[in-house]
Structures are given as structure tokens and as C-alpha cells.
Amino acid sequence: QEPLTASLLAGAPPQEQKQMLGERIYPVIHEMHPTLAGKITGMLLEIDNSELLHMLESPESLHSKVEEAVAVLQAHQAKENAQKSA
């Protein structure tokens, strides 16, 4: 698979750009969190494309962002559960 570059992305419509980024980061996230991969990818796609591209080139920053997203997701779910039981 050829690397995703800024110029490759720039040639696609905005919605398509997120799709392309999602297709690249999803497999990486799936390795780390198979059950949460879809939601984590969805969260990370809210980040700027330039930062997502950087994260693809730097697995370390992608990994730390994924862990950050997992923490946010778990806090969000805990809050929803608390509201449901209230």
C-alpha cells in the first residue's frame, strides 16, 4: 500500500479525505483495541488532517493519541451509564 501523502489527500474532496485517513489508521487501532477500533477511529477523525497524517508517519504519536481517545471514550461511557442509572 502506498503511503498516504498530503498531496494525495489534497486531490480528494474533504469527506473523502477523512475516509482515506480512516482506512489507514483503522488497522493500526484495530491491532491495539479490536473491540473499540471503530469508535476510536471515529474520534480521531475529528482531528485535523495534517495532524492525522503526522500520526500515520509517527506510530508513537498515533499510539499515544489512541490511548488518550480510549480514556475519553471510557469517561464518556461512564458518564452515560451514570446518567442512565440516575
Binding site: Q15, Q19, P27, G38, T41, M43, L45, E46, H76
Partner: peptide
């Protein structure tokens, strides 16, 4: 929307067109 964001975040599925936040709470 009823103000709840219980469906957040939207889920990405490989091969499925990504619609971002439009994926949730139609």
C-alpha cells in the same frame, strides 16, 4: 436530537463511506 450524545462517537467502518457526525443521531 434530544440533546443526548449517547451515540457519540460515530463509528468508522472500513469500506463504508464516512459521514462523520452525520453518522449518529439521524
Amino acid at each position: 436530537s434530544n440533546g443526548s450524545n449517547i451515540n457519540w462517537p460515530p463509528e468508522f467502518h472500513p469500506g463504508v463511506p464516512w459521514k462523520g457526525l452525520q453518522n449518529i443521531d439521524p
